Computed example of a mutant assay.
Amino acid sequence: MQFEQMKEELLQRINNKQLVNATVSQPRQKSNEIKRIKLKPIELKGIYHIQLEYQFERILKHENITMEKFGESLDGILEQFRQLHIQFVNEIVQIQLSKKNKVLWKSEKSKEKQVNLSHNRKKQYLLDDATPYPFLIRLGVQTEDGKVKKQKYDKFKQINRFIEFIDDSLDHLPKDKQIRILDFGSGKSYLTFALYHYLKIEKGLNIKVTGLDLKKEVIEECREIASDLQYEDLEFLVGDINDYNEETAVDMVVTLHACDVATDMALARAVKWGAKVILSVPCCQHELNRQLNSPALTIMTQHGLIRERFAALATDSIRAEILTLVGYETQVLEFIDIEHTPKNILLRAYYHGQKPTIEQRKRYDEFVQFLSAKPFLQNELQDYLNS
Rank of each mutant, 00 (worst) to 15 (best):
T324Y: 08
F370G: 06
S189R: 05
F88M: 03
T263H: 11
Y231C: 08
G304C: 09
F165H: 13
I47S: 06
L170R: 15
E247Q: 14
S294E: 13
A258G: 14
G187H: 06
K203Y: 01
L325Q: 06
I65V: 15
C284K: 09
V271T: 09
V250Q: 05
L60W: 12
F236L: 00
E334D: 12
D183K: 00
I92A: 13
P375L: 09
F165I: 01
I42W: 00
F88C: 01
Q369N: 14
Y54Q: 10
I318Q: 10
E79I: 10
L44E: 14
K109C: 04
L297Q: 12
Q291M: 14
V115S: 04
V20D: 02
D316K: 09
K122R: 12
V277I: 05
N289D: 07
L371V: 08
T315G: 06
Y196Q: 03
L371Y: 03
E63A: 08
S186V: 00
I181N: 10
I95Y: 10
N289H: 12
H286R: 12
E217N: 15
V238F: 01
K203F: 02
F165G: 04
N344V: 03
L126C: 11
D243P: 02
Y231V: 03
I241F: 03
Q291R: 07
L104T: 08
F156A: 05
F376D: 12
D260T: 12
D240V: 03
E112K: 15
T301H: 07
F135I: 06
V368R: 11
L325Y: 02
E53M: 10
Q354N: 11
D264K: 11
K7V: 03
D145E: 15
E53L: 11
E4I: 11
G185F: 00
L229E: 02
L371C: 09
V277N: 07
F367W: 13
F56V: 05
E359G: 02
P295L: 00
I219P: 02
L44V: 15
Q285M: 10
E334A: 10
Q285F: 04
L127D: 01
N160M: 01
T143N: 13
F370M: 14
F162L: 02
S189M: 00
N379Y: 12
T143G: 06
D365P: 05
R290D: 13
L237D: 01
D168Q: 13
M265P: 00
K355F: 07
L191I: 01
L279N: 08
V326T: 04
K216V: 09
D183H: 00
K276P: 06
L44Q: 15
N245G: 03
I59M: 07
V277G: 08
A268R: 07
L371F: 03
L195I: 00
S294P: 04
K147Q: 12
W105C: 03
L377S: 05
Q302M: 13
R82K: 15
K200A: 15
S98I: 05
D243T: 12
P41C: 06
Q302S: 11
A226Q: 04
V238Y: 01
K177T: 11
V218D: 01
R138M: 14
Q354C: 08
R307H: 07
L279G: 09
L10F: 09
